[in-house]
Design a protein around this nucleic acid. Structure first.
Lengths: 185, 185
DNA sequence: CAGCGAGGCTAATGGCGTTAGCCTTTTGGC
DNA sequence: GCCAAAAGGCTAACGCCATTAGCCTCGCTG
């Protein structure tokens, strides 16, 4: 294989850099090409379309998150694990404010993002396993958890809360609120 | 004023129709012009740019929501009012799944959307007033409320939850979770 | 060393936002 | 009633972007 200055993974990497620096809406094939030092149409040798690049970026971010979140919960269980998962999620979004917006809203509906979506879902399921919820209760609990985390982090990343003051406290309140809603023996 | 087939308000109205039918990302001056039976550049007589149209649409949606939410809470107070506000918010998003995504993430930072943002904020503040929270506690509570509602409704509107089955129950669980976190005498 | 294919390029097309400049219709003041 | 002014429409044109087609060349493989 000749002249492999670029690869699919490399293009995704450059795309992440563009997103980090300029935001999701500035993710453009032209911007990626410029940053990679390449003509725009050359990208099509590695990526089928802008839509596919977006999808690949989404997968990459979800895999990244799954890895980091897993690290945050290993060796913990119960309330401790739940709190740690929630804090780690927020921390990830704060570290890469623009990346979270690149994750698809419904990864499970698209074959291209399904696997990464399940990988992420598994982490959440694992953390709730200790509570021995029945199927229905587990579904409700995981939806609540996702809603709370998505709501807070996406508002925070978008600057949706007026002042950043005291946001740690607010989030901690949400963490405790959710934990309190879980069944404790 | 001559030949007023169109007006700023009219353009916004058409934009809402486009958003309702084709989604936020399809809100394009070309689409609005086509639907209004007018050439694209003609829109500039009523609207300064696509960005401004987006902003106007956001304002329009926030005002709409503020009105509907107000209707949902008048004559109620305490837990009753909170539950009603939360249910009405979700109902609005379900009725116009695409409109909610058109509201700016941080309306208070932009003079053009500030007023509508405060209008909406007032409804939430009013509902929490009965709990006599001190300033700090009120801020935390309102942030929690927004995070929960935004998280759930935006995920639901985007099809982020696998099956729509049992979503009413999940949301009700969130409503009770939040209410339980408020101080009760 | 020959050739073939991966990986780059330029040129061209179509959709979009936006600007400039023109033309007509309406209307407010005389 | 009339006339100027301007509101509100239009076409033409530009630049940016995604995408496609077709070419060229490097560098590995036989």
């Amino acid at each position: 294989m000749p002249r492999a200055r670029l690869s699919t993974a490399g293009v995704v990497e450059v795309a992440l850099a563009v997103i980090d620096e300029q935001g999701l809406e500035q993710l453009t094939l032209a911007a990626v090409a410029a940053r990679a030092g390449v003509a725009t149409p050359s990208l099509y040798k590695h990526v089928a379309s802008l839509a596919q690049l977006r999808s690949l970026v989404g997968v990459r971010v979800m895999e990244d998150m799954a890895e980091q979140l897993t690290l945050a919960v290993v060796g913990r269980s119960g309330d401790d694990a739940v709190a740690s998962l929630m804090r780690a999620s927020r921390a990830y979004v704060l570290r890469h404010p623009n990346r979270y917006a690149a994750t698809p809203a419904d990864p499970l509906h698209d074959p291209a993002t399904q696997a990464a979506g399940y990988k992420l879902l598994q982490v959440f399921l694992a953390v709730l396993r200790a509570y021995r919820l029945d199927d229905s209760a587990a579904i409700h609990a995981i939806r609540c958890l996702r809603a709370i985390m998505h709501g807070f982090t996406s508002l925070e990343a978008a600057g949706g809360f007026g002042l950043p003051e005291g946001l740690d406290d607010t989030y901690e309140q949400l963490v405790q609120m959710f934990i309190a809603s879980l069944p404790h023996p």
